[in-house]
Each structure stands twice: as structure tokens, then as C-alpha cells.
């Protein structure tokens, strides 16, 4: 099986770099985008196996991205959202729109790895 492709959408460059390093180390092919517009272009170009996105992004939020994926592109690829604590309303909206999982900041990279792995494993099964 090929390495899974992962789209990482995070506007914080340092955190993105850290997560990217960790994800690549775990064997994922990571494409990093720093804003919503680039994320949308990337999704139009090619669909990854999983999307890890921050909720609050410039131009195009994570929730809008879920809506776009589910209702425009009609794709069911798994989406994990990252958001700050106390933003539960957004998260609930995202879950209603079809997000698969949610992880709060500060992010534990190890926890994120486990969640990604679990979701992909469920999908494959």
C-alpha cells in the first residue's frame, strides 16, 4: 500500500512545520497549505486520503472546507479539525456538516497521529 496522502492546513507556520515533520516521520505524504484559498485549490486539484485542518483559517475556514467537501465535491474523505479550546460551537457545526474528528489546541502530536491512524484504519476496513 502506498503512503497515505495528507493535506495539512494550518496557518501557524511553526506548528505546521512541527506537525509536518512528525507526520512525514510517520510515513505520510504531507502537503501543507497556510490558508483556506490554497487548501481549496489543492482539494480541487487532487483529493488526499485525509485532511487535517485548522478551524480558523484565512479566506476559507475549516468548517467551510468540510461543507465544500461534503456538499460541493461530494467527497467523503475523512477530515480532522484542529481548534482552540472553547470553540465547541464551531466544532459541533463541523460535526453536523460531516467532520470526522476534532482535536483541541494545544495539540499533542502523538495524539493526532493516533487519531489519524485510527480513522484511516476504519476507512480501509
Amino acid at each position: 500500500m502506498n503512503d497515505p496522502r495528507l493535506l495539512l492546513a494550518e496557518d501557524d507556520e511553526m506548528l505546521a512545520s512541527l506537525l509536518r515533520y512528525r507526520l512525514e516521520k510517520e510515513g505520510y505524504l504531507v502537503e501543507w497549505v497556510s490558508d483556506g484559498r490554497a487548501m481549496k485549490e489543492s482539494l480541487e486539484r487532487t483529493l488526499p486520503d485525509i485532511v487535517v485542518s485548522d478551524v480558523l483559517m484565512p479566506y476559507f475556514s475549516g468548517i467551510e472546507m468540510v461543507d465544500y467537501l461534503r456538499n460541493e465535491i461530494k467527497s467523503s474523505i475523512p477530515v480532522i479539525l484542529i481548534s482552540t479550546a472553547g470553540n465547541e460551537t464551531n466544532v459541533l457545526n463541523a460535526f453536523e456538516l460531516g467532520a470526522d474528528d476534532f482535536i483541541a489546541k494545544p495539540v499533542s502530536p502523538s495524539e493526532l497521529m493516533v487519531r489519524i491512524h485510527k480513522i484511516l484504519k476504519t476507512r480501509v476496513a
Binding site: 501557524d12 511553526m14 506548528l15 512541527l18 489546541k105 494545544p106 495539540v107 499533542s108 502530536p109 502523538s110 495524539e111
Partner: peptide
């Protein structure tokens, strides 16, 4: 600065 920024964003063993 980098370490302080990252400290607010990561948790767990990484922190």
C-alpha cells in the same frame, strides 16, 4: 521565541 510559540500550541510529551 520559537520555543515559546510552540509551547502554547503543543501538549503532551512534545511539550
Amino acid at each position: 521565541e520559537v520555543l515559546m510559540d510552540l509551547k502554547t500550541d503543543v501538549s503532551g510529551s512534545a511539550r
